[in-house]
C-alpha cells in the first residue's frame, strides 16, 4: 500500500518523533473518559507547576465527511470542543483540544501535551497516564470487535436442485 492509501493509518503523522508522541497523547486523552484521565493523573503524585496561557474555553468545530466516503469534502455537522493551553515549569507549552464541554478534560490534555515535551516528565507521563489509557482503550476496542464478530453471519442463497430420478 502506498502513502496515499486511506487505509494506511496515521496519514497525517508528521515526520518528527516528538510530534508523533504528542499526537498519541492527544488521541489517548481525548478518547478516554475525563474521569479515567483524572484518576490516572491523581496517581501521579507530583505534577508540574502550571501557568495558564489563555482561558480554557468551549467552541465548535465543523465535522467534515467525504462524498461516498472518499470523495469531495462536505460539512456534516458540528462538535463542541473544549480547548486549553498551559505552560509548565521549564517552559514547555501544552495545548489541549478535546470533544465535549469539559474544561478539566481539555486542561489535562494540555498538561499532558506540555509534559511529553519535557525530558523531566515524559517518562512518568507515559507510565502512569498514557500506557494505562492505551491499555483501557485497547480493551474497549477489542471487546466491541469481539461482540461484532459474534454477530457475523453467512447468508446463503438457496439453490434449487432437482433430485435425480
Amino acid at each position: 500500500m502506498n502513502q496515499s492509501d486511506p487505509l494506511v493509518a496515521g496519514q497525517n503523522r508528521p515526520a518528527n518523533a516528538l510530534a508523533a508522541a504528542r499526537q498519541r497523547a492527544h488521541a489517548l486523552i481525548a478518547k478516554s473518559h475525563p474521569a479515567t484521565v483524572q484518576a490516572c493523573f491523581a496517581r501521579m503524585g507530583d505534577l508540574p507547576q502550571t501557568s495558564p496561557l489563555r482561558p480554557t474555553e468551549i467552541g465548535l468545530i465543523m465535522v467534515r465527511g467525504r462524498v461516498g466516503g472518499d470523495g469531495q469534502r462536505f460539512n456534516l455537522g458540528e462538535l463542541p470542543v473544549a480547548r486549553a493551553a498551559v505552560r509548565i515549569d521549564g517552559g514547555a507549552v501544552g495545548v489541549g483540544y478535546v470533544a465535549g464541554r469539559d474544561h478539566d478534560h481539555a486542561e489535562m490534555a494540555a498538561l499532558a501535551d506540555a509534559m511529553i515535551q519535557s525530558d523531566n516528565w515524559r517518562e512518568q507521563l507515559e507510565d502512569v497516564v498514557l500506557a494505562p489509557l492505551a491499555a483501557e482503550l485497547a480493551i474497549r476496542k477489542t471487546t466491541n470487535a469481539r461482540k461484532a464478530a459474534a454477530t457475523k453471519v453467512d447468508f446463503f442463497t438457496m439453490v434449487r436442485t432437482r433430485a435425480e430420478k
Partner: peptide, 29 residues
Amino acid sequence: RTTLARFGASEPIETQKMDVLRRVSAAFK
C-alpha cells in the same frame, strides 16, 4: 450551537478506517 464560537473545521472523517460495530451489504453476499 449559535452561542458558541467556531474553532475550525475537522479533517474529513475517514469512514474506511471506522471501528466497525455493524456492517451489512444487501447487494454483495
